[in-house]
Design a protein around this nucleic acid. Structure first.
Lengths: 209, 209
DNA sequence: GCGTCTAGAGTTGTATCCATAATATCTGAA
DNA sequence: TTCAGATATTATGGATACAACTCTAGACGC
């Protein structure tokens, strides 16, 4: 049975896989048709997506949100603050087991630095693990939203030459700070990491245009 | 005409005015009845409120979210990070006019330090003004959500003896840092301010129980 | 008397219908 | 040819009807 949660996921996937691109108008009846459900669950899913700012209003209708240069910069500022806080809290709360898991992740990730898609997923899991270690559910939620916005609306920045190795080195520095329980250093290390990531993205965007 | 936005506001107000308290179950047909609209706009409003974590699921039904001690602490941590960032950015972007407005607000607020309700509203406006000066729309959004959670789910912390004057002195310090364009100091001043505010809240909660 | 199964009421979830608003198109005139 | 006005089509928002699911209470059997 299709349900409201399904409709939400289905639309999310459709946006994710590029069936609907930023700026595209989403027509309820069209979505209902595509996913073989009535307009009701579609409408509710769309509203959810709208409140999460993944969709935007254009007059009366909804379009897939897009991030212009300024918005991307703004998003990165907020993300840096939240991720920095997560690292800081992780340094305070992470158990030895969690630290080991983080180290293991980095070690594993080093074995496929030439597979950007897989690395991107691994990157996501790494950051997620830090979020969880923060022991702050509200923060975890906020970061999930931030990541969703970024994941859907931008392509991966890990395909640049040498960026993979650099990324993992930065990850290493973050985990070391967490292991030392040095929350200040962890905060800073994560912010630095994101700063480089943002820089890389900007370079990609500049080149692609 | 009742509309979906109205339903959202109506439910929000109903929670705000204590008609529905944290933990209360919200029955769609009951709300529809109360507000003289059909279940459709009610449902959409409820979904919005749920994604904003003002409502939580309990099995199949929705209840008004509540903040326990831990959640309140978690919320304050995130709020401090975001408000700190806002102050930091405000120090970078605020125009002289905006700084003057902030100073004016403090001056005005000093004239009614004995009216907690009015002061609470003024406090809200003051912080809002700083948010706007950050020039970061995403951040403004996030902070609006944080404030909504806190405003709905906790009573004001400004009714404590002497806290009003102290609050305004802290506000003064924040604005001075912004005026000096000292973003680091602004960040710190706002975080300190919130730290005291949280401390006050904890004292209230401890006394009330 | 206790446990389980069934029947029923109540609530959420889905589909469809209707009304209204917005937009696009077509026609006519300048 | 272009602009304006009117009309027609289409999409969204709201109401209602219907189905599925859950939880409870009562009855029957062990």
């Amino acid at each position: 049975m299709k349900s409201q949660k399904d409709a939400y996921q289905l639309i999310l996937n459709a946006i994710d896989t590029g069936i609907y691109k930023p700026g595209d108008r989403l027509v309820e009846s069209e979505l209902a048709d595509r996913f073989k459900v009535s307009r009701t669950p579609i409408r509710e899913a769309l509203q959810r997506l709208e409140t999460q700012t993944l969709l935007a209003r254009d007059g009366r209708s909804l379009i897939v949100a897009s991030l212009d240069h300024n918005q991307l910069a703004e998003l990165y500022e907020v993300r840096a603050a939240l991720e920095g806080l997560a690292a800081q809290l992780a340094a305070q709360h992470a158990t030895p087991e969690e630290v080991r898991v983080l180290y293991d992740m980095i070690a594993t990730d080093r074995t496929f630095t030439d597979d950007p898609a897989r690395l991107s997923q691994a990157n996501r899991r790494f950051h997620n693990q830090i979020h969880l270690a923060s022991r702050n559910r509200y923060l975890i939620n906020q970061l999930e939203m931030v990541h969703r916005s970024m994941a859907l609306l931008t392509s991966s920045a890990l395909a640049v030459d040498g960026r993979s190795e650099q990324t993992l080195d930065e990850h290493q520095a973050i985990v070391e700070a967490i292991e030392r329980r040095d929350s200040e250093a962890a905060n800073k290390a994560l912010k630095t990491h994101l700063s480089y990531a943002f820089e890389t993205r900007l370079k990609i965007d500049a080149g692609e245009v």
